[in-house]
């Protein structure tokens, strides 16, 4: 998967480059609008990440240019979160936007979503290590032992297990499980994870739910795979 990042802020471009490369994407970075246009014309990309403020040709113009030819997904980044900005970007055909400062985990999640081709596959049975989750029967089993979960705990585990190995931010979890779409500084998610752990991790030898400090939570067979 090839991603083009158009961002004139060197530090931002640099960490995006590193982070996305480490997550297994082929990443190219340009710092200038006109150069970006050249690259867009001459190479194939699966995703564009555009900063709105880039020299010579701004993000809006690039977006219009891309949309005049291709349907490649576009994620735009902006430091201004005025509603007019977001609306404009989405009207011009952007697929998603992130407001600076954004968390890298969040960016990664958006990138994954945008690159997931076609409708998401409906998986009904998940298995990680010796943990099994059956969506249709609403059943969770670990080491052959059935575990009773409340609805929310089940939804939380479902979210984590369907993103196995990915770090999910607290904000993302709150929005997916409880439909809470604002940044809350309460520890509701931490409490919920703690309670989930007490049921699916603590009675067993190995832990599956890992805390990634400052970033969020990740479900995987062991700690070493917790990297995003």
């Amino acid at each position: 998967m090839r991603i083009l990042i158009v961002e004139d802020e060197i530090k931002t471009a640099d960490y995006l480059h590193k982070g996305l490369s480490e997550s297994g994407y082929t990443v190219e970075v340009v710092h200038d609008g006109l150069l970006a246009r050249e690259r867009i014309l001459h190479a194939h990309f699966d995703l564009f990440i555009l900063d709105v403020m880039v020299p010579n040709m701004d993000g809006w113009q690039l977006l219009q240019f891309i949309r005049s030819r291709w349907q490649t997904p576009v994620l735009f980044l902006t430091a201004r979160d005025a509603v007019a900005y977001r609306v404009r970007g989405l009207e011009l055909g952007a697929d998603d936007y992130l407001i600076k400062p954004f968390s890298f985990v969040e960016l990664l999640a958006r990138v994954r979503t945008l690159l997931r081709r076609g409708p998401p596959r409906e998986i009904h049975l998940f298995r990680v290590s010796n943990l099994e989750l059956d969506v249709l029967q609403r059943r969770v089993v670990r080491q052959g032992q059935a575990i009773h979960l409340t609805n929310r705990e089940f939804a939380l585990l479902h979210l984590l297990i369907s993103h196995e190995g990915e770090v999910l931010s607290r904000t993302h979890i709150a929005s997916q499980v409880w439909n809470m779409n604002f940044d809350s500084d309460t520890n509701v998610v931490d409490v919920a994870i703690r309670r989930l752990r007490s049921k699916i991790d603590e009675p067993f030898d190995t832990r599956l739910i890992h805390t990634v400090r400052g970033m969020g939570y990740c479900l995987g067979p062991d700690t070493t795979s917790a990297a995003p």
């Binding site: 400062p101 500084d185 400090r213 400052g214």
Partner: peptide
């Protein structure tokens, strides 16, 4: 170092939330 960075992230998030 990981602990330090994690702690940093928490502070950054606090700042970011405050700005929001």
């Amino acid at each position: 170092y990981q602990t330090l960075l994690g702690s940093h992230l928490e502070e950054y998030e606090r700042l970011s939330r405050m700005i929001d």
